[in-house]
Design a protein around this nucleic acid. Structure first.
Length: 198
DNA sequence: AACTGAATCAACCGCGTCTCG
DNA sequence: GCGAGACGCGGTTGATTCAGT
């Protein structure tokens, strides 16, 4: 993947740019495992990486962080993205908080490729291997019924029965497991917006 | 088989906000 | 209160992949 010019070269500050190598990933992972997240600007020195702090953070958050989901966005996740985007617009990081294992970058990319163009008919995942499409179709069929129920529940929840609690929304709570009590506390300001949204 | 164009996604950039001395 | 550096976010870019022709 070391393609044309610009890849693997250094910028004015001497930071390496372009795709990450497995060695760099390993170094970054080791460093963060040992020292935790944060202090990205010092990661480059301490981990022996010739990368900017920004680049290290991005790589960790979007690719290396444990618990990240790989693979296609599920119908449930898609529904949630639509709803949350309707609420918050392009607040990708906010939306990402309610999609466990998904990153803001991933959601942003997904939105751009799938929904920005939905003025046209939904050429969902327009380019995929045929078997992927078949596989997804099967998956979606299996999920659709469940998804409908969840979405109904979710919309009721989001649109605001003021007295509705998480315990009153068991499926949603189970489904989106980051919607935990602790997160509610953390993000109470967001929930404030949610409650006030109409 | 070769070509083309659209989709995908990793990575970068610019800017606003936060934190700390 | 102020400035510098660090951090986080949203927007954008561009190489790669792959279906269609």
């Amino acid at each position: 993947m070391v393609r044309l010019m610009g890849w693997g070269v250094a910028d004015e500050q001497g930071w390496r740019k372009g795709p990450w190598t497995p060695e760099e990933d390993k170094l970054l992972t080791q460093h963060v495992t040992l020292h935790g997240e944060g202090r990205w600007s010092s990661v480059s020195k301490n981990a022996g990486l010739n990368r900017s702090g920004k680049s290290c953070r991005l790589r960790w958050v979007n690719y290396l962080r444990p618990g990240l989901k790989k693979g296609h966005i599920t119908p449930q996740e898609e529904g949630l993205i639509i709803e949350l985007h309707a609420l918050w617009g392009n607040k990708w990081s906010t939306i990402a908080r309610y999609l466990p294992g998904r990153t803001d970058n991933e959601i942003k990319n997904y939105w751009r490729t799938h929904f920005k163009k939905r003025e046209k008919p939904p050429q969902i995942q327009g380019k995929r291997k045929a078997e992927d499409v078949v596989e997804e179709k099967q998956h979606q069929d299996a999920e659709t019924r469940k998804s409908d129920e969840i979405n109904k529940e979710r919309m009721n929840y989001l649109r605001g029965d003021e007295d509705m609690s998480f315990t009153n929304c068991p499926t949603l709570h189970q489904e989106v497991n980051c919607w935990s009590i602790s997160n509610v506390t953390e993000d109470s300001f967001l929930w404030g917006s949610l409650w006030n949204w109409h």
